[in-house]
Simulated assay, not measured.
Amino acid sequence: MKTIRGTVSKIRIIKMTASPLVYFKLGETNCLIAAHSLSFLAEAAEGCEMVVGGKFNSRNQFVCRRYAVIGKPQIVIEYEKSMYPHRKRV
């Protein structure tokens, strides 16, 4: 398994099924993810730093098996920017 680190750009949904096929570009590498694509869409955003693990297919596209967002995931950023008040801890 190879690992690649870079900045995410061009996030596109290729195929809508129970687990969608998602295309994204990591630096200059074309990447595909299907295994954890719904959580990927929630956590990744264009411009975020990410590390992915996987292998290249016959079309020289990187098929991701694992990923990790460096810094805060997008869903956390959206929660912190939420206009609704946070619950007070007792």
Rank of each mutant, 00 (worst) to 15 (best):
33 I>E: 01
37 S>G: 06
65 R>G: 04
43 E>W: 03
88 K>R: 12
12 R>Q: 12
43 E>P: 01
81 K>E: 06
28 E>C: 10
82 S>F: 09
74 Q>L: 11
47 G>C: 12
36 H>S: 07
20 P>W: 03
73 P>H: 06
67 Y>T: 11
53 G>V: 14
83 M>G: 13
29 T>N: 06
62 F>T: 00
16 M>W: 06
12 R>A: 07
78 E>V: 12
83 M>L: 15
3 T>S: 15
17 T>S: 12
29 T>Q: 04
48 C>R: 03
76 V>F: 10
12 R>N: 13
65 R>P: 05
89 R>T: 05
80 E>R: 12
49 E>H: 11
75 I>M: 13
73 P>N: 05
46 E>C: 14
40 F>C: 02
53 G>W: 08
89 R>F: 07
61 Q>F: 05
8 V>S: 02
24 F>S: 01
25 K>V: 14
26 L>I: 02
88 K>F: 04
7 T>W: 02
26 L>T: 00
39 S>R: 10
31 C>D: 00
75 I>R: 10
34 A>I: 15
42 A>M: 10
50 M>W: 01
8 V>H: 01
56 F>S: 03
6 G>R: 06
39 S>W: 08
3 T>Y: 08
62 F>N: 04
4 I>P: 00
88 K>L: 10
23 Y>K: 13
18 A>P: 03
83 M>Y: 07
75 I>V: 09
90 V>G: 07
76 V>S: 15
83 M>Q: 15
18 A>D: 05
12 R>G: 01
66 R>D: 07
38 L>M: 11
83 M>F: 05
59 R>P: 08
63 V>D: 08
61 Q>M: 13
72 K>Q: 13
24 F>W: 01
13 I>V: 15
13 I>R: 09
12 R>K: 10
6 G>I: 06
56 F>W: 05
15 K>E: 11
86 H>V: 11
44 A>C: 09
64 C>G: 05
